[in-house]
Write a protein that binds this DNA or RNA. Structure first.
Lengths: 222, 222
DNA sequence: CGTCTCGTTGACTGTGATCAAGCGGGGTGG
DNA sequence: CCACCCCGCTTGATCACAGTCAACGAGACG
């Protein structure tokens, strides 16, 4: 799976980058830097590129009719985002605390898919992975209570970072709240309660140390 | 989009059926009948087939760790379900009030994808459509209140059936509740309230007549 | 006609949202 | 260097929406 992700062509390049849809298939791309809370693309814009996080973190977001924000997902180094089959983006993407991103033209990907079935398979699997993530998210929002959502979030991040215990959250409480469909107050209370229960430690708000993973896994199971 | 769906080979066939991933590409399949609440496939089983609803209705479901049920989606005539890229199904599928389903071996689809890029594109778009549905579902569960969810559900079904006003619900209140992450009582109250407000009429529980679509759309916009 | 499932209705409860205030750390300017 | 401010976070009090528990009604089926 891992090798289906885009891969950098090497540290030497700073404005040019490559992606590989399948092993041995590199597509030419460009690297871009974004500051704090910068828009990478907006909902409704033409979906000309596909993106890969090189460093930093990115959030994909949508707004409901009444203006409330929903975060669809967080994207960390190695993750692909901005995949579309239609002409336009159905959601927006923003850098969180600054991010380096590799862009590849969709036309290149489409050309690769048209001539190599392995590339087509790889693209399908990227969509399938997004689909699983979205279904998992729907499950969390539908079935879990507040503290369970936060526990699941922390576990998910530790797995993603392959960190055993120490976690540096790139996102604010507001981001977590909009991702988990809670308020910042509820998220904050969940963190505080877990610290009281010695399940995690919070040296500062953005730094989480997992003390008792078992307990977290127990909480997660709603 | 519509022609990317499987299409029946004709009414004459009863045990044999075809799917077309792209116009002009028919793949041989088999037709099956299921009774009420029959399992079509279970989570964890080998994903050997891809399915298309011919008639009736199907629900795809998952269970959370504590045993509560989540309905991922309802599948109506023409819809594809059971798509996977991994070896096994990550969810189960059941007929609701009886369903006729066309099955096609995944190996056939994979063969078609390997030799024809148009088939690969079609498959990718099927996944992409599922992805959009799952993201929409997550948005509903995250941002909308109870009555708004029910309003969105009714509107979605009327659009899906291309019915202007009359709707025959194939699913029970319990199914709707597990789909919208509500209780049956709350769903029932939402229906009743809408009837009181003259937004819908309910000659019987499973039959909905949309009286005021505008009002429904207003409600939906959470 | 009785039973059984599904749906509705009502009374009460609980979880998380809302409103409001206070804390703390990082950054800027005097 | 320190004072101040601003923003992100925390904490507390109250409220409201949906969940829970319980009873009843209405069809469907034997």
């Amino acid at each position: 799976m891992r090798d289906l992700n885009f891969e950098t062509a090497g540290a030497a390049l700073s404005v040019s980058d490559c992606i590989s849809l399948a092993p041995g298939m590199a597509l030419q791309g460009v690297r871009m830097r974004y500051g704090r809370n910068a828009e990478i693309f907006g909902a409704g814009e033409k979906a000309e590129y596909v993106y890969r996080v090189v460093s930093g973190a990115v959030r994909t977001i949508r707004f409901s009719a009444d203006g409330r924000r929903q975060i669809l997902g967080f994207h960390l180094p190695g993750d692909i985002f901005g995949l579309e089959t239609g002409a336009r983006h159905s959601f927006s993407a923003e850098s969180i605390a600054g991010a380096e991103v590799a862009l590849v033209r969709r036309s290149l990907i489409e050309a690769a898919v048209a001539e190599d079935p392995r590339a087509a398979l790889a693209l399908t699997q990227l969509f399938a992975r997004e689909l699983h993530a979205a279904q998992e998210h729907a499950l969390v929002l539908g079935l879990k209570g507040a503290s369970e959502r936060v526990a699941a979030f922390i576990l998910h991040l530790t797995d993603r970072f392959e960190a055993n215990a120490d976690l540096d959250l790139p996102m604010s409480r507001a981001d977590i709240a909009d991702y988990l469909a809670l308020t910042i107050e509820t998220v904050s209370r969940a963190f505080t309660q877990m610290e009281r229960d010695r399940i995690i430690a919070l040296p500062c708000a953005r730094h989480v140390i997992v003390r008792d993973r078992e307990a977290l896994e127990l909480m997660e199971a709603a």
